[in-house]
Amino acid sequence: MEEWVAHPTEHTALDEVIPCVEPATANESLYRSRQVTFELVNVVNQVITNVSNRNFPPQLTPLYYNQSGPLMPLLCNPFTPDLRDRNCSRGEVTLDNATQVWKKYECQSTTVSGGAEICATVGRVTPSIYGQMTAGVTVSQGLYQYGPFLIQLQDCTFVRDTFTTINQGYCPGLERYSKWVYVGLVMVSLAVMLSLIFWVIYARERRHRVYSKQHQPYPVEDKPAATVPGA
């Protein structure tokens, strides 16, 4: 692990389980995620500016759906056209609260001949248009909030930082305790091995004593008297 953290571009055993991309590829992915976020926010704002906040005559269907009431605020684009970070302007809603704010501008709709949906009450967006705008905000918010983190996973920056923290904060103690455990296991192994050796010696000695006792010759005085044939 320490080798991989120190040399992330070199081939190590961790490459098989943690495939990483080149930094240039990761930067390109980050650039594309910002570009998609910028374009999605622009599309939503164009709908608000050119459709929802306009009062069209009834003849201009489908641009006309009886939209009325206060104008909807625009969505804050977190990036400039050159994809740098951008601060929100006054009156814009952020990706975090846009759906809640726009909910106030949703009208109750009804379906007319031809399947067109028009507002039956005051409002700037129909439920279907509001749903499409909410979907765009959800995608943009996901890319904006989680894109950088996903890029860190892609180029293994997050994994490398995590391994560095583990290596610096936990490995010294873990290594010390592992040595203690290893020494303890060695001592237990030696004790078991010595016990087996002593048991083998004891068993052989005991068997030798039993054998010697069984084959010990009788003393002369204890031998039975010889019998004479025909006596």
Rank of each mutant, 00 (worst) to 15 (best):
F163V: 08
T162S: 07
M133S: 00
Y182S: 15
Y144G: 05
F163G: 11
I129K: 03
K179Y: 08
T134V: 04
I129C: 05
L153E: 04
C171N: 14
V183K: 13
V183I: 15
G169H: 13
R124S: 02
L143S: 04
G173L: 14
A135E: 07
Y182E: 13
G136K: 09
L150E: 00
V122S: 14
S178C: 13
Q168F: 13
P172K: 01
V139R: 04
V125T: 06
C171F: 15
S140R: 02
V181H: 07
Q132C: 10
C156Q: 03
F158I: 06
Q168N: 11
L174V: 06
G173M: 14
D155N: 05
Q154F: 03
G131A: 14
V137C: 03
S178G: 15
K179C: 03
Y177M: 12
Q145A: 09
F149W: 10
E175L: 05
F163Y: 12
F158L: 12
E175V: 12
V122L: 10
T121D: 11
T164L: 14
L150R: 04
T164S: 15
Y146E: 01
V183Y: 15
A135F: 10
N167V: 12
S140K: 03
V159K: 11
V183S: 14
S128E: 03
P148H: 04
D161F: 05
Q152F: 08
Y177T: 12
V139S: 06
